Simulated assay, not measured.
Amino acid sequence: MIKETKQADKAVIDSRPVFAKDNYKLMIAGLVITVVGFLLMTGGYNDDATKFKPEEVYSFQRITLAPIVILLGLAVEVFAIMRKPKQ
């Protein structure tokens, strides 16, 4: 004889956020820093399409500063994700 029992499946829903409030603030800061880095990389408007201005394309701002700022923003993002919340 097989005895069947019906039990209601109870799903436990955890309503806590994945990260703490401070982590989200750091993530937003990292995102802003990364966007600033990409904005530093843009530009170089030229009125004449037949002229090439290497001093604008290969400037310190675009070749050195912008990638460093982008990497800094990504490092802040990694730190914000890995940081344990304060209890």
Rank of each mutant, 00 (worst) to 15 (best):
E4P: 00
K6S: 08
K6Y: 08
K6P: 01
K6M: 07
K6D: 06
Q7E: 15
Q7R: 15
D9G: 10
A11C: 08
A11L: 14
I13S: 11
D14S: 13
S15N: 13
R16K: 15
P17M: 14
P17G: 12
V18R: 12
A20H: 07
N23H: 08
K25D: 06
K25W: 15
K25G: 05
K25H: 13
L26V: 01
L26I: 00
M27W: 00
I28K: 11
I28T: 08
L31H: 02
L31R: 01
L31G: 10
V32Y: 07
V35I: 15
V35M: 14
V36G: 00
G37A: 04
F38E: 02
L39A: 04
M41S: 08
M41N: 07
M41F: 11
T42V: 08
G43H: 10
G43C: 06
G44L: 06
Y45E: 10
Y45S: 10
N46Y: 04
D47E: 12
T50P: 01
F52G: 00
K53Q: 06
K53Y: 14
K53I: 05
P54D: 05
P54A: 04
E56I: 04
V57W: 08
V57F: 14
V57H: 07
V57P: 00
Y58Q: 07
Y58W: 15
S59N: 14
S59T: 06
S59E: 04
R62D: 04
T64V: 14
T64F: 14
A66P: 01
A66D: 02
I70T: 03
L72W: 09
L72Y: 09
L74A: 11
A75R: 02
V76W: 02
V78T: 06
F79M: 07
A80V: 00
M82C: 11
R83D: 01
K84A: 07
P85Y: 03
K86N: 05
K86A: 05
Q87T: 02
Q87K: 10
